[in-house]
Amino acid sequence: MTSLLLAQAATEPSIVNQLVDNFWFVLAIKTLVVIGFFLTAPMVVGYAEHKVLAHMQGRLGPMEAGGFHGWAQLVADGVKFIQKEDIVPEAADRPVFSMAPAVAMVPYIVLFVIIPFGPSAYIVDLDVGIFFAIAVSGISVIGVLMAGWASANKFALIGALRAAAQLIAYELPLILAAAAVVMQAGTMSMLGIVQAQEPMWNIVRPWQAVGFIIFMIAALAELTRPPFDMPVADSEIIFGAYTEYTGLKFAFFLLAEYGGIVALSAIASVLYLGGYLGLPGIPLPAFMWMFAKIGALAFMIIWFRATFPRLREDQLQRFAWITLIPLSLLVVLVTAIVEVS
């Protein structure tokens, strides 16, 4: 992105030069790019979920909106959400209730800032990239907690507490799996991690392959996607923390969920699938490789939703603390031994 602008600046006269040098102009452009991506990519994943889920159940899914195979279904949904009445329960804590959707959504927007879509197609390359990514993605649950607490609804509160407990349990294997990758690459920068996989993607190494599985399971749990969707288990607690939300605020939570799918798929493909690196012999631009990998991981997440039934709350906690965390510690250990020797 920046290099593109710089290349333009080199050939064109001073006014463009001045603009590219202007910090605020570049900031505005970068912000627009990130927000544009955040508003479109989750829509694509959401539509894919409609279609994939439908076909896995022998249905067709949306077929009417927009004419061709219901491609505009989510646009129509968005218009519908805007039209709906914005209801705030009487007993709700109004400011917290209204702020919660933003707190849940903004971290996932911020996440896209550090994801590299090519050797020079990134917004910023932080030295603490992956640390930043994991730290920021953890903030989202505060939004869910705020929503649950401010709703003054028992189901919302149970859902929010489940979400918090789930995050605490699954953040640990997520961090440990990522730590193993950082040890492998010798850097925390997202770009550095991709470049370290130049000879061989991380997933080819057997111990990192285990790490990849752990990371994806933990990511599913962090996104509260099936089979780890106890915080929104509709047969038990209606819709968890989002029970009292309507209209645009509810849409923001949905956007956060699908944005989270894209963000965590992107992080997983950077950590394990070589990010924007392509397979030899297939000439595709770097960003297409990145999109393909994000798409494949997002498809997997949808596929899991179509296949697996929801776990029970205690099974979820038991699985995290007794299976995933020791296993991820083992991955860290093996990585350390292999890297040192």
């Binding site: 994939v52 439908a54 076909h55 896995m56 022998g58 249905r59 067709l60 596929w303 296949t307 697996f308």
Partner: peptide
């Protein structure tokens, strides 16, 4: 068993849908 389940859903996705419009 998990992999078998994934196989079942994949098989259904590749089959034509039974819905009549």
């Amino acid at each position: 068993g998990l992999l078998k389940g994934l196989g079942v859903t994949m098989k259904h996705m590749l089959k034509p849908a039974v819905t009549q419009q």
